[in-house]
Nucleic acid binder design. Structure first.
Lengths: 228, 228
DNA sequence: GTTGGCATACCGACCGGTATGTCAGAAACC
DNA sequence: GGTTTCTGACATACCGGTCGGTATGCCAAC
């Protein structure tokens, strides 16, 4: 999934972050921080976070080591900030999309189909097709990091499950499904399909695969409920 | 995807009764080589290949650095051997399963459903649930390796696509589908679902998710063709 | 309105640890 | 005695992280 641009939000685990939000330091500071995060995000997706060297990231960001360690206590803290930022973006995207879907229709089945459609639109509106999920990138290196990162990723995925499965259950109650199904499983299929599509699209060098799979998932929902 | 057990992966023991394919220099030699490959495979899945240190692998394998560099020219060659071995296993699994499915039924739709079922059986027969796909692990680090590795992974995935899409097309011709569909896309959904399920199952710490998604994929096929 | 104090932001040489890779040769087996 | 297999000290390079120092802006005191 792609990170929605979070804008200038400085975040650290310490209470100093509060000062960032309220006092608005020199603008240059958060700029540097954001630049580092953005470049590090790309490097983590293409090389894996562990293998991405600070020097490589900082060179590309045009930032020195001193500047980096002024903003981050360690490389581990960078990982934390990276995942946190990404998770926040994903959750925000979910909220936005479900809110719009709920405005556009009262029917839970239509809402699910709208969520898929709006997500599809979102992909179109991004300039380039997204090239991976940061969670997946970390998940194949998890032994190197704390369980906290995994937790953040899990919470994000569970939020999508919750949103979709609730509507699917309501849809089944209202319309009756063609065959019985487990709402959680069908909801999880969304995340599963996305994560898998990133991997397969990259391996086959076929960026269009992502949208194809997304639409096939929509087909699945429609077939489950006998909608055209 | 899961590595098909390649058979004689004698790990620690000195089981020399097993006959290796063709080339076999000295038994002890291939034993060491296979041990290294097996351990490296596990490390690559849990830490990412780039971040997995030779020392860690070799310590666990009970092998010295000299022994390693006797068998592999470099760490890069280890990556190559690892991916090649994995790809070979996957292709072999595909062949076995399709051959069995084709024996069990002449109907292409039934064959597809059988392939899914046999794959499910295969998962059951593995002792532990598989914990990832080596291709996926490498795919999020691809900038570090040659395009050759990606190619090998791609060929494997395309083989699965080819096998499934051919049968799906034949099934559509014979039975007519409930709604039109692209056989390649539906075939790719198998790989996509698997790859995604690995990522999500690991992130949510929910190994059962893999089988759930597999069965949901089977549901999709059945719904496409109006069976049951 | 100049001065001095202080905080933020940043610089970059340097350090210790660890990674991959080398090599001369020993051990085992034909 | 030649080949295969393995040993382990060593070379070298790079990585994360440290640290003393600089630049700039703000503010209060004089």
């Amino acid at each position: 999934m792609l990170l929605a641009d979070l804008g200038p939000l400085a975040v650290t685990g310490t209470d100093r972050s509060v000062c960032y939000l309220e006092r608005m330091p020199t603008r240059k500071g958060t700029d540097t921080r954001d630049t580092i995060l953005a470049i590090a995000h790309r490097h983590a997706l293409r090389q894996g976070f562990a293998a991405a060297s600070l020097e490589g990231i900082l060179t590309e960001a045009g930032v020195t080591k001193g500047a980096f360690f002024h903003h981050f206590k360690s490389k581990g803290e960078l990982a934390h900030a990276l995942v946190e930022r990404y998770a926040r973006g994903e959750l925000q995207l979910l909220e936005e999309i479900t809110a719009r879907a709920e405005k556009l229709s009262r029917d839970p089945l239509q809402q699910v189909l709208l969520i898929i459609g709006l997500f599809d639109e979102f992909l179109d509106n991004q300039g380039a097709p997204p090239d991976g999920c940061l969670f997946a990138s970390f998940c194949y290196q998890d032994e190197l990091f704390s369980d906290e990162l995994r937790q953040m990723a899990a919470e994000t995925m569970l939020a999508w499950r919750k949103a979709l499965s609730g509507k699917l259950r309501a849809a089944a109650d209202r319309h009756g499904a063609r065959v019985p199904f487990n709402p959680d499983t069908v909801a999880d299929m969304f995340t599963t399909m996305l994560e898998g599509a990133f991997v397969v699209a990259r391996t086959l060098n076929a960026p269009h695969l992502l949208k194809e799979q997304l639409l096939e998932y929509r087909n699945h929902i429609e077939l489950l409920f006998d909608r055209e």
